[in-house]
């Protein structure tokens, strides 16, 4: 119930800036087209393996759509609350700080899903043909992968957010997370085409669960057994988020207010 109220209030808050949001959606369409153009260019000189040019265009377009489901604001907004002193009140609430922050951000993600990801899906489907799977099971596995990806993104965002309690430069962790996600998640190219050393780094990180796993399932390149890895990361990241909360409660340094 608390989660639902927090999420709903965040959706309402985001709805206030619809014009600004429309500009961002337009920018996202262009971003996707830039990445698609890269692969169309490469596809003119290379058969692109098992994907082919059309398959790679679909892969990139699908990744651009689901990007918005795992796109969290910097530190789930906790940095601002540390800066204003609001965090002291948040820690005193009868709701766990992680539930509070993740609940609010879940509303923001729901907003992104409805007002950005969904329109992008239809736009790209019209432009490139996303070839929606016909088997309900594929939709089910993809949805499960996406749910776990969203949850993992919330956990990582929370970890970055609580770092604001100790450093005023937490924004760089957010940017680092974003950059590593860009390289290691398989957003721009399938992991198997990366050099071996980079594949090893990617597989040892949680990032492939954001793009490589859901896109693989959606495109029928992977089976439900690949869901085990995201599931394990969800458990690990939850433990990390709970441990981080326990740690920050010992020393809260508020910057102002």
């Amino acid at each position: 119930m608390v989660l639902w109220i927090l999420a709903k209030s965040m959706v309402r808050s985001r709805l206030q800036y619809s014009a600004s949001h429309a500009v961002r959606t337009a920018a996202s369409v262009i971003f996707g087209m830039i990445y698609v153009a890269i692969w169309q260019g490469i596809g003119e000189q290379d058969p692109l393996g098992e994907y082919g040019t059309e398959g790679m265009v679909r892969y990139i377009a699908f990744n651009q759509v689901i990007l918005w489901l795992t796109f969290t604001q910097y530190g789930l907004g906790l940095e601002e609350r540390v800066r204003t002193g609001q965090i002291a009140l948040d820690l005193a609430r009868p709701v766990h700080l992680f539930v509070f922050a993740a609940g609010r951000e879940a509303g923001s993600i729901a907003y992104n899903a409805i007002f950005t990801a969904l329109p992008l899906f239809f736009i790209y489907d019209w432009m490139f043909g996303l070839a929606a799977p016909r088997e309900p099971a594929v939709w089910l596995w993809t949805a499960a992968a996406l749910l776990m990806a969203v949850y993992s993104a919330l956990c990582i965002g929370y970890g970055i957010g609580v770092a604001s309690l100790w450093t005023v430069e937490g924004r760089w962790f957010h940017l680092l997370n974003y950059s590593l996600n860009f390289v290691l998640s398989g957003f721009l190219m399938p992991l198997q085409w990366m050099p071996d050393w980079l594949q090893a780094v990617a597989c040892a990180s949680p990032y492939p669960i954001f793009h490589s796993v859901p896109a693989g399932l959606y495109m029928g390149k992977a089976g439900p057994d690949t869901l085990l890895v995201p599931f394990l990361w969800c458990l690990l990241l939850t433990a990390g988020a709970l441990a981080a909360t326990k740690l920050v409660r010992r020393k809260v340094e508020v910057q102002g207010g």
């Binding site: 680092l176 950059s179 590593l180 860009f182 390289v183 721009l188 190219m189 990366m194 980079l198």
Partner: peptide
């Protein structure tokens, strides 16, 4: 961060 961003393109 900037090295990671370039790495995506370089790969």
């Amino acid at each position: 961060v900037t090295v990671a961003e370039f790495l995506g393109l370089a790969v």
